[in-house]
Design a protein around this nucleic acid. Structure first.
Length: 572
RNA sequence: CGGGGUGUAGCGCAGCCUGGUUAGCGCACCAGUUUUGGGAACUGGGGGUCGUUGGUUCAAAUCCAAUCACCCCGACCA
């Protein structure tokens, strides 16, 4: 490719709305353009990078016998209604009607579609296991798209789905996928960590699932790592404990205390001169259970935070979110002094965090404006409740075995799940086993955010001069840079070198523009080509060129005639 | 959805408070000359429904209202 024919614009300035390095650089170097909130156009360079990533994915997946398919981007509502996700996925899924008033959506994920494909073909256990994957566009109407390709609404995703007659077989594929993922990310130049995760709305609770994270300060997920025990988990599901807590002993019957306008735990603790951990934080959450509105009151120690994902898991209520003031009104509760005592409202399910000792004494909200209650023990004073781990893990916690843990942030670039028979059952996709009885195959599903992984590569490898592509992803491996392209000798040399490189099957670009040297250097650095071959004045004297490695900045003077050969053989 | 903010040339911004010539600046773009080892210099040039609609006014980028879009902070996920 000649630079003069590459339809690209690079920028010296950083767009204001780009918050993170990968977004800034991908834009500045002319890889992406924004077309709307969370929507991006890809330039010819970006398309090459995406194709390179796809090649890696395809190669690794075909090694473990996965088959590539392509499912339609728009899917009919009927399919989603079979699994109940037409409502469950809510606004995440963008829904619309066609001219005949039929409901459709742009696929945010493809479990239903792939099961539909599967059930039209699969009849017998003899056809299993099978692992189907695709690399295509997904659309999720994210609540808040941000960070460029990191959280776009429209994005390229590789999704794979496997089908099995038994758990052992599923486990085998799961492990094979786990290994394939490790190789894929390694080939992309990413340093990933596999992390135990929460299946969320996708899977049955309790199924095996791992997230692959790139550690980065700009990551959106909080991870808990225990080096001593060798595990890492998303803080959404990590169970940890506080190293030491002191509880108040019970002093007597419950007692109403006036607390005026002190609502938050901090205010309350200051006003009553009590430790925050001796107060109970009560949070009302609303969600859906079997299509009906459902409420939870979640309680934890005053200086802990409620983890909504954990509440969802323990309550089987979906789409859980904080209740607003109107909800509190309907429930007859008072904002600021919400509490679980004498709450005979049977619509509210009470879950109390396991760190709240049953016999200990706490200060809780009274549901009466201006008052709290002292001397509350949950065992004596709350009629029915469930106790479970529903708090957020936090700094200074220890593992359940008492070992120390670290908190760090990660970018989730891949996720693998065991889905069980949730979708095959819902969509009645059965096969006959070898006794002639029908069974619902177990499924696994496996995703990689292609655009996000590429952004993570930029995030992880970029330096102050721009992007640094690993060879496997680079849109061009070599950039030939003639410094005076108006000088015929130099221009001709560049042209010959370029043709020779192409002849050797090398992925090469020549910067044939008539611009100053600084411009070419800056652009080549910014766009992150791994190797630069610079042809300057010294070429005219001794036929030498300079080979420069983008990542290390190392330079070497080489005779023009054997520089390509040496590069090809990686003899530097 | 809630809270905060911004819309002026492809990008980054000034002008708005205090209404009044032809709406500016830097980068980018076009032509020419001179340059060429780290985003060159000079000369000349092109590009704007000032987000949109309505209102106030002799007069609106500027004041008012509505609306749309985008961004930032919180609950979602590859």
């Amino acid at each position: 490719m000649k630079y003069s024919q590459l339809f690209i614009q690079t920028f010296k300035e950083t767009p204001v709305d780009a918050q993170i390095i990968s977004h800034q650089l991908l834009h500045r170097a002319g890889f992406i353009q924004k077309s709307g909130a969370g929507l991006y156009n890809y330039s010819p360079l970006m398309v090459k990078v995406i194709q390179n990533a796809m090649t890696i994915i395809r190669e690794e997946l075909s090694k473990i016998n996965a088959l590539e398919v392509s499912l339609s981007l728009a899917t009919p509502a009927e399919l989603w209604k079979e699994s109940n996700r037409w409502e469950e996925l809510g606004d995440l899924m963008i829904q619309f009607k066609d001219r005949l008033d039929r409901d459709l959506c742009l696929s945010p994920t493809n479990e239903e579609a792939v099961v539909d494909y599967f059930r039209k073909v699969a009849k017998s256990y003899k056809q299993l296991p099978v692992n189907l994957f695709q690399i295509n566009t997904k659309f999720r109407d994210e609540i808040r798209p941000r960070f460029g390709l990191m959280r776009a609404r429209e994005f390229a995703m590789k999704d794979a789905y496997s089908f099995h007659v038994d758990k052992t077989c599923l486990d085998n594929t799961y492990t094979a996928m786990f290994d394939a993922y490790s190789r894929i990310f390694e080939r992309m130049g990413l340093n990933v960590m596999a992390v135990e995760a929460d299946g969320g709305a996708m899977a049955d609770s309790g199924a095996k699932t791992h997230e692959f994270h790139v550690l980065a300060d700009t990551g959106e997920d909080e991870l808990i790592v225990c080096k001593e025990e060798g595990w890492a988990a998303n803080s959404e599901m990590a169970q940890t404990k506080r190293p030491d807590i002191t509880y108040n002993d019970l002093q007597g019957p419950i007692e109403l205390v006036e607390t005026k306008n002190n609502h938050t735990i901090q205010e309350l603790s200051l006003f009553l001169n009590e430790k925050e951990s001796h107060c109970l934080k009560s949070v009302v959450l609303k969600g859906k259970k079997e299509h009906k509105q459902a409420y939870i009151m979640a309680c934890c120690l005053g200086d802990d935070e409620i983890n909504i994902s954990k509440c969802m898991k323990h309550s089987a209520i979906t789409q859980l979110e904080c209740a607003n003031e109107d909800d509190l009104d309907t429930l007859g509760l008072t904002k600021g002094v919400v509490g679980p005592v004498k709450l005979d409202h049977k619509e509210i399910h009470i879950i109390i965090d396991s760190h709240v000792k049953e016999e200990a004494s706490f200060i809780v909200g009274s549901n009466k404006k201006g008052f709290h209650i002292k001397n509350v023990t949950i065992k004596r004073d709350i009629a029915t409740y469930q106790q479970a781990d529903i708090r957020m893990a936090k700094a200074h916690d220890v593992s359940m075995n008492g070992n120390s843990i670290d908190l760090c942030r990660g970018i989730e670039v891949g996720h693998i799940f065991q889905l069980g028979d949730k979708y095959t059952k819902a969509l009645k996709a059965s096969v006959l086993d070898h006794h002639g009885k029908s069974l619902y195959p177990l499924m696994g599903c496996y995703g990689i955010g292609v655009g996000r992984a590429i952004a993570a590569v930029v995030e992880q490898l970029a330096d102050e001069n721009g992007i640094v592509w690993p060879k496997a992803l680079a849109p061009f491996y070599i950039a030939i840079i003639p410094l005076k392209s108006k000088d015929e000798i130099i221009a001709n040399a560049a042209q010959r070198l370029y043709e020779k490189a192409q002849g050797m099957g090398m992925n090469v670009i020549v910067d044939d523009r008539h611009v100053s040297p600084g411009f070419k250097f800056k652009d080549a650095d910014l766009m992150g080509f791994p190797i630069q071959i610079i042809i300057g004045e010294t070429f005219k004297e001794e036929e030498s060129v300079e080979v420069r490695w983008r990542q290390s900045g190392k330079k070497e003077k080489v005779n023009m005639h054997d520089c390509l050969k040496k590069l090809k053989e990686e003899r530097f």
